[in-house]
């Protein structure tokens, strides 16, 4: 295989001269078009119909008074007014922000710590990496159910610790509307910080090993080395991880459904669940699509600066 390919490459220059004149090159390109277009047609349809079409449709529906079935009247921003007067939606938004800040911060700190510590030539590095990452292979449903059981106030962790003799031990986050959200954060961090670790570890392994040697000769303490020298170097990877986590926050749905169903009460409602409920259960398409549009805007607000910083100036290669 390999030798065949090199042979072909060697043959190339001779023939390329023949094909160089501008006219024949242009003709050749025109000739390839049908099959290329045929191959790219599915992508064009998906982009046009689903990504752009459905998105526009959703935005359009959010300006109608649609209930169970879509109607195509125009009520301006009525649905949005209603949305931002809706206690449940406001709680959802607030939850998203609180969850997002805690979840992202915890994932970044834990992921960074794990990556840095695992990079200290520890024993059983492979095993530890495998352990830290495996939750990421699980779905949010499995994650949510596992944690729901683990944190079960009557029979889970709290009871077990009390049985062991610590009678006053209290860890019933799921039962309390004030703390249920933190239980979601815990489960989310469990599922996602391994991913941050993998991304940052790849960054750490790309750092010139001579830098570490230079720092040791200079007598720079390890923590200072990581803070002042390595952290800026892997900055772009931290940003990438942050964006990924932020997107996951906006999309947060499965975990809530599995772990708390939005409860107790509406304590752990999130926008994605608000949309699903209003579209498919509460028969309020207008309000649901308005909430979906708010989600879209949120994602764009996160995404645009990042994409601009990353590809805007240089038009480099994605991810």
């Amino acid at each position: 295989m390999h030798t065949m390919l090199t042979k072909e490459r060697e043959r190339l220059p001779v023939r390329v001269d023949v094909a160089t004149p501008a006219g024949s090159a242009r003709r050749a390109r025109r000739r390839i078009r049908p099959s290329t277009l045929f191959a790219l047609a599915p992508m064009a349809v998906v982009v046009g119909v689903v990504y752009l079409g459905a998105m526009a449709w959703t935005v359009r529906l959010s300006t109608t008074s649609s209930k169970l079935l879509p109607t195509y009247d125009f009520v301006g921003l009525d649905q949005y007014e209603r949305l931002f007067a809706n206690a449940r939606f406001l709680v959802s938004l607030q939850n998203m922000v609180v969850f997002g800040v805690l979840f992202i911060a915890a994932c970044l700190v834990l992921g960074f710590l794990l990556a840095v510590l695992i990079d200290q030539r520890v024993k059983a590095e492979g095993l530890l990496r495998t352990i830290y990452l495996y939750p990421h292979a699980l779905s949010f449903i499995v994650t949510g159910l596992a944690w729901q059981w683990f944190l079960n106030p009557e029979l889970g962790l709290q009871r077990a610790v009390r049985e062991a003799g610590f009678e006053s031990f209290a860890f019933a986050w799921l039962a309390d509307g004030e703390t249920a959200l933190y239980a979601l954060v815990l489960a989310g961090v469990w599922q996602s910080s391994g991913l941050v670790m993998v991304i940052l570890l790849a960054g750490l392994r790309g750092v010139d090993p001579d830098l570490w040697k230079a720092a040791r000769v200079d007598g720079i303490p390890a923590w200072r080395y990581y803070l002042s020298i390595v952290l800026p170097l892997i900055g772009p990877m931290i940003v990438t991880a942050t964006v990924l986590l932020a997107i996951a926050v906006v999309k947060l749905y499965d975990l809530v459904v599995a772990m708390t169903k939005g409860g107790p009460g509406i304590a752990t409602e999130v926008p994605a669940k608000f949309v699903m409920d209003h579209l498919f259960e509460r028969a309020n398409v207008g309000l649901g699509t308005a909430a979906a549009t708010v989600m879209l805007v949120t994602v764009l607000a996160v995404l645009t600066p990042w994409l601009y910083a990353r590809y805007g100036s240089t038009s480099g290669r994605p991810a």
Binding site: D208, D210, L211, K213, A214, A215, R216, V217, D218, G219, S228, I229, P232, L233
Partner: peptide
């Protein structure tokens, strides 16, 4: 290394970026 009283120059320069 820091207590040995040596200074070192590397092939890849190993300058602290940023």
């Amino acid at each position: 290394p820091k207590d040995r009283g040596v200074a070192m120059v590397f092939q890849s320069y190993a300058l602290y970026p940023r």
